[in-house]
């Protein structure tokens, strides 16, 4: 789980171009949207690409991702349950 969370944070930092940010700076339960990391609607779509590309999980719309994308922990939980690769 620790390994998955670290990898996931690295993938998010790279795909979302979170300049000067390290995995340690993102709390596992920090909200990703609004307060916290302050991600926006395009970032949400980018998270869908990460799930598809690295874990073989297909989400059809940002609406489906709403609860999944709450925090790093919630994404990691979802990946563990649904990953196909």
């Amino acid at each position: 789980m620790e390994e998955l969370i670290k990898t996931l944070k690295e993938q998010i930092i790279e795909a979302l171009n979170l300049e000067d940010m390290t995995p340690e700076q993102i709390g596992n339960d920090d909200p990703l949207f609004g307060e916290g990391l302050g991600l926006d609607s395009i970032d949400a779509l980018e998270l869908i690409v990460i799930l598809d590309k690295h874990y073989g999980i297909k989400l059809n719309s940002p609406a489906e991702g709403k609860t999944v994308f709450k925090s790093i922990n919630s994404i990691a939980d979802y990946i563990r349950q649904h990953r196909t690769k």
Binding site: A15, L16, N17, I42, E46, V49, K53
Partner: peptide
């Protein structure tokens, strides 16, 4: 086998 267009790049 790698079809992963990025929304941010496309914009």
């Amino acid at each position: 086998d790698a079809f992963y267009p990025s929304p941010a790049v496309f914009i």
